[in-house]
């Protein structure tokens, strides 16, 4: 039945990762080089090689994910392993360095790796947390259906507004024509529109009504109800976009930084062979 990547196959890949970490730690503890431990000892080379291969393998995930015809192994296996082995990489790589961090290219590679891993951890958090919120927020509708409902409310608002004089009419028109959902990355992530035409229309129409007791109160209060409903729907639509953005955004750090990591790592390996 349904199983999240963390508990997948009774934590099989957690066990693998734990084993790898344990082996590295034990080896590191038993290892007794002439110099302080570092990447240049035989264990250093071993751990470094393991780490580098793991990075290549972790990056290969991006390709494997899109090779749909490939093999029997489910992508969930890959991701579950990616997550746990990716985390264990911190230990493996750190033991490789022998805690020799200086301001140099090598540490840059290490730093990039840590950032990629931390972004990955956020990803896992996002993947486990936001889907539920998204479902709850949608209340059984798709985003498209939500948009259609908004469009319907818009039409009705306009029909009423036509009867209600210029000011109101202009406000409503502004609200229907300048409805923004999403937009720039920041707007998506914030889940809000600081300059929401509908909010503006709603508050102004409210004041109008209070000021003018004579006019067709029935239409105006209906308009207020409708604008209120639209504002509610907009909040939900923006929240939806926000949640989707939160689930996607970290990948924009995770993937490009892993390429940067790959470059730095290549430089690191080349440099150590040249300057040793």
């Amino acid at each position: 039945m349904h199983q999240s990547i963390l508990v997948y196959r009774s934590y099989r890949y957690l066990k693998w990762a734990a084993l790898l970490t344990l082996a590295s730690v034990v080896a590191y503890a038993l290892h007794n080089p002439h110099f302080p431990p570092n990447g240049g000892t035989w264990l250093g080379y071993t751990l470094g090689t393991i780490g580098a291969l793991m990075i290549l393998w972790l990056m290969w995930f991006g390709v494997r994910k899109r090779r749909y015809n490939e093999g029997k192994v489910k992508l969930e296996d890959w991701l579950s392993a990616h997550v746990y082995l990716g985390i264990s990489l911190i230990i493996v790589a750190t033991l490789h360095t022998g805690f020799q961090f200086h301001w140099n290219l090598h540490t840059l590679a290490f730093g990039l790796m840590v950032v990629v891993i931390v972004s990955g951890m956020f990803g896992v958090f996002a993947y486990l947390r936001y889907p539920q919120l998204m479902t709850a927020n949608r209340r059984g509708q798709t985003l498209r259906q939500l948009m259609m409902t908004i469009a319907e409310v818009d039409t009705e608002c306009r029909e009423i507004a036509v009867k209600l004089g210029d000011t109101v009419n202009r406000l409503v028109l502004d609200s229907t024509e300048n409805t923004r959902i999403g937009g720039s990355i920041w707007r998506q992530l914030s889940g809000k529109d600081p300059d929401c035409a509908t909010e503006r229309a709603l508050s102004k129409v409210r004041t109008e009504v209070r000021a003018d007791a004579s006019a067709s109160v029935k239409d105006e209060s209906r308009l207020i109800v409708l604008l209120g409903r639209k504002s509610e729907l907009l909040k939900r639509a923006r929240r939806d976009v926000q949640l989707k953005a939160l689930m996607d955004i970290w990948l924009y750090a995770h993937v490009p930084l892993s390429f940067a990591l790959l470059a730095a790592l290549t430089a690191h390996v080349i440099s150590v062979f040249f300057y040793l």
């Binding site: 029997k72 192994v73 969930e76």
Partner: peptide
Amino acid sequence: IEGGASCVRACPTGAAIRVRPEEFFTL
């Protein structure tokens, strides 16, 4: 296709599964 339903194989998070009637109750 080897490995069965691609949709299920391609789901990274394990959200997509295929179920047979005998399994509904367990689900």
